[in-house]
Design a protein around this nucleic acid. Structure first.
Lengths: 334, 334
DNA sequence: ATGCGATACGGCAATCATGCCGTAATGGTT
DNA sequence: AACCATTACGGCATGATTGCCGTATCGCAT
């Protein structure tokens, strides 16, 4: 390993490893796309061939493609250290690959956001979030509650506080990925809603160019109007803009329906192949996708009250920790 | 004009036009770099040659390089319409090229930020900003005040309000540009300050990937601690991360001194060629540059009081509208 | 006016990226 | 068991980009 195209090789090696198990150039290519690297399948094969010769990868079978050799694994260990971390895009990637939820078995782990509120405030908070869930402005209709002393993700709930876990919208990408649809996360943004319908994007921040989650920033900057939106149908909510391969659009529509049946609604809009979606142009051969922010219920809390602590892209957590919001609410009131 | 390299040609044509007057591939290349396009000088010449043949550009003299022909100009008019605006990077670019301030004559226009406050609040605001200017945490030590009914940039000051104009840090890039040093604006960020010295960047948002000015967002999200920093020397201020050609670093140092003499300090740190600056790696052959946020004085106001309206990258404005802050302050108190 | 240093240019060739296409496995169907 | 559809592979060729290098101008100092 010496010159500049090494960067590509490393990226391909990494992608291949993340897929776990053998894969061909096409799949690797999609995976790379998701982290912002645009290479043609032929180009991927070109480098794979070189790496075969260097002993970093090896063919498994003509049909299945290649896998990473032990040596390639070692090379990765060695190189990864240099990686400039910190940007949200890589955090999304990492969480995406760690979640395991499967729509068919309805079990596994999902990606979560976390909010911390004083425990005395729990009932109020639930009432505040109720219209948001009722209007389906968040990612799904589920919520997890962790009491003081319990742990949720990487956090132990402090005394006198309650943790609210919401489903992060990265979960939507993860579910699609489990169905073989690679999703590229592009922007976090604010979507203006009129009469319950999304009308336009009013702000955008690219995931690959920020170290702060855009949604989190929008909420802190008080730029959302989720409460209004939940009450009147007009407001501004946080969303995420993504892309899927154009050919996968029909399947995305199918999966969207199934997700909704499982209380995991969140896909707000699906664009047409190569067509801009809400004025955002997409890459060649892809279609846009708008997903609601998993933090929207928390945004509603922040709009109404000061001192709500939260952060998004928190951790992966077993889906069993989550209950249907309305059931939970009835339970708390009962 | 037909295929895909058209995009390059257009970009080169545009760069050449923005330089106004004839230029060679090297200068064009730097200009392109500033808008995120990385082409080697040879490549630029390659396309220039094609455009010569198409009649879009023409050589002026062997020494001076080429210029845009009338036909090329027409082509630009025609094509520019498609440009997808909205991202901060292009707004920065546009303001950069519209400002005209010249360090030697100390006249011309500079890029401004604008804040609106109730006029009854003016004296308080001036006192709040005083320590910020005293510690040189902003961009320069100048301020403009516009009373109700007056106009400042594109804004007419509403009744009962006062407008405060601060020098936007894009001005620093503009000044360097006038000296032939092309500056690439990369990130807006938050810089932690300890004992008056910058220690680390705690957040970054790339200009090319956001439709909101990062600094503006940080202030609204209450993530700055400019007041603390002004009073104790420890805090968090807004900054901008840029890059200049490595070879220009010494001249930047010289210009920095001259800027300070003219009450336009703002350059916080200059990196070494090809070396990361505060852990941010730079492009090959470039050096990093940290410039303080022109909005920092305004941030101090926002930290102390609610209801300050402001926005950055406002407009270009004649430098004569600005006075030295301390003189202004004495005048108001006297 | 003569020479020096800087800058610009474009021919030529090497390198990189990728389109085209024929071939090889593999799983599933009939 | 024969066949089909799918997926992967790599040789070959083309187009895009860029490095190398010799040459042409121009401004300025001597």
């Amino acid at each position: 390993m010496k010159d500049k195209n090494t960067a590509y090789k490393i990226a391909i090696l990494k992608a291949l490893k993340e897929i776990r198990g053998p894969a061909g150039a096409a799949r690797i290519r999609e995976r790379l796309l998701a982290s912002g690297l645009k290479l043609q399948p032929r180009t991927v094969r070109f480098y794979l061939l070189q790496m075969d010769r260097e002993g970093l990868t090896q063919p498994v079978s003509r049909r299945a493609g290649r896998q990473v050799t032990e040596q390639g694994d070692g090379e990765l260990q060695h190189t990864n250290i240099i990686e400039k971390v910190g940007f949200v895009a890589s955090r999304i990637d990492s969480l995406l690959y760690r979640m395991s939820y499967d729509l068919r078995t309805t079990t596994g782990t999902i990606v979560t956001n976390l909010a911390l509120i004083p425990k005395s405030f729990l009932m109020r908070a639930v009432e505040d979030m109720n219209p948001v869930f009722a209007r389906r402005l968040g990612m799904g209709t589920r919520l997890a509650i962790a009491r003081e002393g319990e742990t949720f993700g990487a956090t132990t709930v402090p005394a006198e506080m309650v943790a609210l876990g919401t489903v992060c919208n990265v979960t939507a990408s993860g579910i699609l990925l489990k169905h073989g649809i690679p999703v590229t996360s592009r922007f976090g943004g604010l979507m203006e809603i009129e009469e319950g319908k999304p009308v336009r994007l009013t702000a955008l921040i690219e995931y690959s160019g920020t170290t702060l989650d855009p949604l989190e920033v929008f909420i802190r900057a008080r730029m959302t109007r989720v409460r209004d939106c939940a009450r009147t149908g007009n407001g501004v909510i946080g969303v995420s803009f993504r892309e899927v391969p154009a050919a996968a659009a029909p399947e995305v529509r199918r999966i969207k329906k199934e997700m909704e049946r499982q209380g995991l609604d969140g896909i707000l809009a699906i664009g047409h192949p190569n067509q801009p979606l809400f004025d955002i142009p997409v890459e060649e051969g892809r279609a846009g996708l708008i997903v609601s922010g998993g933090l929207n219920p928390v945004a509603a809390l922040c709009e109404a009250h000061a001192g709500v602590r939260f952060h998004s892209l928190h951790e992966v957590e077993d889906v069993a920790r989550f209950s249907d919001f309305h059931v939970l609410r009835d339970g708390l009131r009962g």
